[in-house]
Design a protein around this nucleic acid. Structure first.
Lengths: 248, 248
DNA sequence: AAGTGGTCTAGACCACGAC
DNA sequence: TCGTGGTCTAGACCACTTA
């Protein structure tokens, strides 16, 4: 018989490298809540034998999860699923700095919070059909007592069923609340920046004259499974602040 | 004699892991020009035996260089030092997009280019002493024929000795020129964004009324050795454009 | 002292690209 | 066909944390 006939596709449904498959399994356990924030993962050799791969392959998968800020690895202590604290949420998603480069501390005041259906603009931004159930939030951020940022947030209701703000808790960072109350971890976001003149509403709320230049930041936030969670428009008075970016 | 006395510091001048030391050696060869842009690196096993480490250690160092966009690795072809093309320079350092998210093509017009000494503001931004020799550049970027961006660039003369723009070549991306003419590769940059009202000069050059909101981008650019190379202030008319950022 | 992740090695095999 | 980088394994030893 012919020995030159190559083996036909041997039923492999997994063209991806092993370490990427391991990565997917681990992400699934985190995203599903099987391994909630704060959970300690099994040791590397244990994971390796459970999944039937070598420790090196597990390590490569864990390294990628660490790069994505989903887990924390510490020599001697083990590997744990990262918890969104106010600090980490701000560190990753709050780029405002003062003129000396120091982090800007702000206090949040919620103006309104109500269920709604996505209008045309929101639907386009979220890439969801018009009329999709959402929650609309309007907030102000005060820096040293003065209103400097006006935010309109649109939350995807399907991702955050029964969303409501904790009683009297106005100042919680949204992403910390998403994780605690809904098990939704915001992993990354895309932003588009431009300069806009303050309109009547912004001018009043921020105590500025109409036409004052404001930095407009339009954000779309995604969860671990890369599903869209939120659309947010922030209008920032940057007279005394800067939005910091690192390019590489 | 006592066997419990630990060996005293055995003359180790290299507390860092081996793969980081390998990384430093390779970066040195690139930064020094020994391996110029486009150069093909020795194969991994060859590098390993030359440096007296295992191939795995070399691979870990190369992975980090690849992450920093200094080299390109291709299965079957080998590893080469990356060359700044107009495309790569723009991809990494030019974040402007139109309202559909498509890249914005611009044509550069140089208004002025002259040697000078750093004034107080420039010195502070570059973290160099006042009076440090620099070159000052003023440029306009035209999008579809219309002036949309006004840039003031301050170049550190020490990094770019004898800097001058190629004859008649007004439209070259600066970072491509830096690499070709001076062997200086810009690796990363830090930017601070704010909204500013157009002043008289910007208004005239961009054909706007004074007071029109502009996006101000202040950039500091660093070379491979993380030395400061350039300070740049860009004023952008964002009526039809957005500055795109990804957070993670 | 025990257990964890971090480093380093050695070697097998695979997939891709150039010749 | 050969040489390259990509994947995967197995195992040794180190450094850190906790108890």
């Amino acid at each position: 018989m012919s020995t030159s006939t190559p083996t036909p596709p041997p039923e492999r449904l997994d063209a991806r490298p092993l370490y990427q498959q391991v990565e997917s399994v681990l992400i699934g356990r985190i995203a599903s809540g099987a391994w909630p924030p704060g959970h300690s993962l099994p040791a590397e050799p244990e994971l390796a034998s459970e999944l039937g791969v070598s420790q090196g392959t597990v390590r490569k998968a864990l390294a990628e999860l660490e790069r994505r800020n989903l887990i924390e690895r510490r020599q001697g202590r083990g590997t744990t699923v990262l918890r969104h604290t106010g600090d980490t949420a701000r560190f990753h998603f709050y780029r405002l700095r003062d003129l000396d480069g120091a982090e800007v501390i702000s206090r949040i005041v919620v103006l309104s919070c109500e269920p709604a259906e996505a209008d045309a603009a929101e639907a386009a931004a979220l890439k969801l059909p018009e009329g999709t159930p959402v929650y609309r939030l309007r907030r102000i951020r005060l820096v040293e007592g003065a209103p400097r940022i006006f935010e309109r947030c649109t939350l995807v209701a399907e991702r955050l069923p029964g969303f409501h703000l904790p009683e009297g808790e106005f100042s919680t960072e949204l992403y910390v609340h998403f994780q605690r109350a809904h098990g939704v971890t915001v992993e990354h976001a895309e932003e588009e920046l431009s300069a806009q003149a303050a309109g009547p509403e912004e001018a009043t709320l921020l105590g500025l004259e109409q036409g004052t230049p404001l930095l407009m930041v339009e954000r779309i936030a995604y969860d671990i499974a890369r599903r869209v969670v939120e659309h947010r428009v922030s209008l920032i008075d940057t007279k005394r602040y800067r939005y910091a970016v690192r390019l590489d």
